[in-house]
Write a protein that binds this DNA or RNA. Structure first.
Length: 585
RNA sequence: GCUGCUGUGGCUCAGUCGGUAGAGCAGCUGAUUCGUAAUCAGCAGGUCGCCGGUUCAAAUCCGGCCAGCAGCUCCA
């Protein structure tokens, strides 16, 4: 590859370097306009760059324009970026001299043998490992856009200083910037909060922040999803239970939740005894397992539960259906012997693959390891982490490690799905747990006639039904495939004369198990089509005098495709085929 | 929870310098019966998120609270 080619924007390394240099230009512009501002950090990210500043006054979006203008000027100045290194003591002195306490802290925290490098452009110098472009002139000034300014904690620690983070993107050409910004606008139209309102799926009210209401159409979607879930799980050998929503304190102390999860739990007192609304289904599941003796022949025992859990999340974390305070987990606990662990994990991943592929969703996997607040020994944790790692590595799956982010009772594999703006949300998770079986003294009788302790996994595929509905709403932009669509067919009589005929057809389709509505309003056909299209109903059946005469329906897809007139049987077969696309293989 | 911003009829939004609110869609009534993305007319609907303050007068200014949005933190 020639050097010329390397300098295209499709090259990720170059892109990151470009954005990283942009962040330095941003910092330089900030320093020029507001010399009293302190510098924190300014990296490139997946879709642009940011820089964190400690400003005496909170920064507002209105101030971004003048920063952009200054950045353009810096680009025009074509300042050379020069790298130099300093020994630790001199580096600290240099940044102290400049009055940059955050940089001093960064330098002090660098490892003993670290090379401490700086990049200088004109009057501006920043602590930085690089790499960078060789000149600010390489950046196209009028294709820089500062997109947002928000708060962020210094080093991501909520007990430290609140900084002002300014986000930006930049491209080598103005057209590319415009295209990118248009794409973002387009993506916002897919926002599930907006579509949820437009399509009548769900609502949120001040009376219950974070507690979603499901409207009739959303409920149909949810139930359809659950029907599918039950079919898949039956195929994989699961049974289903339901455990109480509230259980007493003693149980939560035994499970460890009272000590490790209480901040997030809703509690109450009943007859002078503390109770907690369940934030997780596992303790109830333990009691079910423990309710009768088990043989090794029963294992692995796969016990599913669509469990309604409540968690008191921070108000600022709430986000449509993606992050709520009460949700249905499509939970399951699988009890097994140690020898069965790898097989069970792999079987579970195969189930995940089947489910996600049904929706055309792709995912990324994270392995989350032991958090500071945990139960169980380090050896146990490491052993379990290794098992998870081995299981997916063996399947040829890639994953990234999320250090210290495991549940308090065990390490986990998290499956992340992306929303319309590319933000990822954890949906599926497989959590290995050898703590709860211990705490609840679970047993099974082995081939040797002796009692043994089973191990277990907690796992959810959809994650939360609510979040998953949010994800697929954005994924399909509200145009759900026919098998999922709350309304699959809408009958549109052309005039009153066809009203009765439409009702008859509707009743027949309904009898065949399809979800049908009739638009019997006294409106023109064009308007009915427009509205059914906006409702994203997969099929519209226009029926008028002609159809009544010929015993046909005129079929139109929401895409606008006109399939012409056909008999009801023909249409039912067509619809039946489309719905079968998700049939369990 | 933290920082910033926002909050007007069911929905989307307008409301100039403080002078007690307006449109379109939806709804209702009537006319129209019209074959592939909006038929016409009329009517009705709001203590301008809540509480308090300033003022002769507050949707507009100030304070507190609530909720939402963006991000951080946290997480399914």
């Amino acid at each position: 590859m020639s050097e010329e080619n390397l300098y295209t924007f499709e090259n990720e390394e170059y892109r990151r370097t470009y954005w990283h240099t942009c962040s330095h230009v941003l910092a330089q512009a900030m320093k020029r306009l507001h010399p009293q501002v302190k510098l924190a950090i300014g990296p490139s990210i997946d879709n642009g760059f940011y820089y964190d500043f400690d400003t005496p006054e909170p920064f507002t979006e209105g101030q971004l324009a003048e920063l952009e203008a200054e950045m353009r000027k810096i680009c025009k100045e074509k300042l050379k970026l020069e790298r130099f290194e300093l020994p630790r003591a001199e580096a600290v002195a240099f940044m102290e001299e400049k009055g940059e306490p955050f940089k001093v802290e960064l330098i002090n925290d660098l490892p003993e043998d670290a090379v401490i490098s700086f990049y200088k452009q004109g009057e501006f110098t920043d602590l930085c490992a690089g790499p960078h472009l060789d000149s600010t002139g390489r950046i196209k000034g009028n294709a820089i856009k500062l997109t947002a300014c928000n708060a962020a904690y210094w080093r991501g620690d909520s007990s430290r200083e609140t900084l002002q983070r300014i986000y930006g993107v930049a491209f080598p050409k103005k057209d590319e910037l415009d295209e990118y910004l248009a794409k973002i606008e387009e993506a916002k139209k897919r926002d599930h909060r907006r579509l949820g309102k437009e399509l009548g799926l769900f609502m949120l009210r001040d009376e219950g922040p974070g507690f979603p209401f499901f409207l009739p159409k959303g409920m149909t979607l949810k139930n359809t999803l659950l029907d599918y879930w039950r079919k898949v799980h039956k195929k994989y050998g699961y049974v289903e239970i339901s455990t109480p929503i509230m259980l007493n304190r003693q149980l939560w102390e035994r499970s460890g939740h009272w000590d490790h999860y209480k901040n997030n739990m809703y509690t109450t007192v009943i007859d002078e005894v503390d109770f907690a609304v369940k934030p997780m289904n596992c303790p109830g599941g333990m009691l079910v397992y423990d309710s009768e003796p088990h043989s090794y022949r029963d294992l692995p025992l796969r016990v599913g539960e669509i469990g309604l859990v409540h968690r008191h999340e921070l108000s600022g974390a709430l986000h449509g259906l993606f992050r709520v305070r009460c949700f249905n987990q499509d939970d399951a606990h699988v009890f097994m012997t140690r020898e069965q662990m790898q097989d069970v994990i792999q079987e579970t991943v195969r189930l995940f693959d089947e489910v996600y592929s049904t929706f055309g969703l792709s995912y990324t996997i994270e392995l989350s390891t032991m958090p500071e607040d945990h139960i169980g020994t380090v050896e146990e944790w490491e052993r379990n982490q290794d098992i998870l790692k081995a299981a997916i590595t063996d399947m040829g799956k890639e994953f990234v490690v999320n250090e210290g982010d495991g549940a308090f009772y065990g390490p986990k594999l998290d499956f992340h799905l992306a929303d319309s703006l590319g933000r990822t949300w954890q949906c599926g998770t497989i959590q290995l747990d050898s703590q709860l079986p211990e705490r609840f003294e679970l047993e099974y009788t082995g081939e040797d006639g002796q009692k043994h302790r089973p191990v277990m996994i907690h796992r959810v595929v959809l994650g939360s039904i609510e979040r998953f509905i949010g994800v697929i709403t954005e994924h399909f932009a509200g145009a759900f495939p026919a098998w999922l669509a709350p309304v699959q067919v809408k009958l549109l009589p052309v005039t009153d004369r066809a009203a009765e005929y439409a009702e008859k057809i509707s009743a027949q389709l309904d009898g065949q198990g399809f979800r049908v509505e009739v638009d019997g309003r006294n409106e023109k056909i064009g308007k009915k089509i427009r509205e059914a299209t906006l409702e994203k109903i997969p099929f519209m059946l226009v029926v008028g005098d002609r159809d009544m005469e010929n015993g046909t329906v005129s079929v139109r897809r929401r895409s606008g495709e006109d399939l012409g007139a056909m008999s009801l049987d023909q249409f039912a077969a067509l619809l039946g085929d489309e719905v079968k696309e998700m049939t369990i293989k």
